[in-house]
């Protein structure tokens, strides 16, 4: 752990204006902590955002920050990172910003594998415009713009990320400070696009939307925290685990029906094959919700590839001045 910086070094002097009780406060504090632990100097960090409650976050950071326009944060962050790959670039975005108006930029950033860290605050609602349904709102939900319930199936951010050929996907819970900070740090360390979906509560327009899994009371039984190289265990007594039953994941209890500790799957986040990662990230209903780094696969990054291509061309082409380029073409002289 780098000890040069503390969380407060990343904190700006601006008053934080989110509603009291909003999940974004917790994520912000986790971010300060993650950055301090990784130890990147604040002036080498650029935090970009789109529009929405969560997109206010850059103002609260003592880093370089750019609060942009709705949905375009991924494209702007791509430009920042491509122009200066030595910066640590973050994108703060929400379920509406990233997956509705900015869906195209989101999937293409992920596909290119540009080395930016996307924090997707998913509260399954439009908060800043006061309560309309978003692309992650469950079908049938009554909101201000769906008074009779939505008739649309929602996106599942993990599925979209992996479908867009993403190499890093993690899920976090706003109130789970320790694990969320750790996950954000792993996202930052990962080279390439990392997507961290944070399940956040909107205390005003969608209060308790993640309650079924986030409440301390039953979190242990409804959530599985995945760590690379460790057994997929969960439960109050850590005695429940995941196994593959044919083509499907199944929850078993150690000591019941003949299952032992050895039967439980070991999480391999570095496995390039998406099958198990997708199954883990889609678990719901009777299955626990997967939290932590689900997928973390090393792959060439867009920004590196661009630098490499330039270096290759420059190694065989000595021209650096416009005049030299022009004189190399079809040129004639008038005396």
């Amino acid at each position: 752990m780098d000890t040069r910086f503390e969380a407060k070094d990343y904190k700006s002097d601006q008053y934080v204006r989110w509603c009291p009780g909003c999940g974004d406060h917790a994520v912000l504090n986790c971010l300060y902590k993650a950055m301090a632990e990784e130890g990147i100097e604040p002036h080498n960090i650029a935090v970009i955002s789109g529009i929405g409650c969560s997109s206010r976050l850059p103002y609260y950071m003592n880093t370089y920050g750019f609060h942009t326009i709705h949905g375009r944060g991924a494209a702007i962050a791509t430009g920042v990172k491509t122009a200066n790959p030595s910066l640590n670039v973050w994108l703060m975005t929400g379920d509406g910003d990233a997956l509705a108006i900015g869906g195209n930029h989101f999937i293409h950033a992920v596909r290119r594998n540009i080395d930016i860290n996307i924090v997707l605050f998913n509260n399954k609602i439009y908060g800043l415009t006061k309560g309309q349904y978003s692309p992650t709102t469950e079908k049938g939900t009554v909101t201000k713009s769906s008074p009779f319930g939505t008739v649309e199936d929602p996106f599942i951010p993990a599925e979209l990320t992996i479908g867009a050929r993403g190499n890093f996907f993690a899920r976090a819970i706003d109130v789970d400070l320790k694990n969320t900070a750790e996950t954000l740090k792993l996202a930052s360390i990962h080279k390439g696009t990392s997507v961290v979906e944070v399940l956040v509560n909107c205390v005003i327009f969608n209060d308790g939307i993640h309650k079924q899994i986030t409440d301390k009371e039953y979190r242990a039984d409804r959530v599985i925290y995945l760590r690379h190289g460790e057994k997929m265990l969960f439960g109050k007594n850590n005695d429940k685990g995941l196994i593959l039953d044919g083509m499907k994941l199944k929850v078993v209890t150690i000591g019941h029906d003949g299952y032992t500790h050895d039967d439980i799957l070991v999480h391999d986040a570095h496995e390039p094959d998406i099958t198990l990662h997708l199954m883990l990230s889609l678990m719901k209903g009777d299955m626990p919700t997967a939290i932590g780094v689900i997928r973390d696969v090393a792959a060439p990054t867009y920004d590196d590839a661009i630098e490499q291509q330039i270096a290759e061309v420059q190694s065989r082409n000595p021209i650096r001045k416009l005049n030299d380029l022009l004189m190399k073409g079809e040129v004639w002289e008038v005396k």
Partner: peptide, 22 residues
């Protein structure tokens, strides 16, 4: 760095990002 992006909006937005970056 002259690059083709996913749409016209990304074309200008990456440029705005690059401009912010110097």
């Amino acid at each position: 760095k002259a690059l083709q992006f996913e749409d016209e909006i990304a074309g200008i937005c990456t440029s705005i990002g690059a401009s912010f970056a110097g």
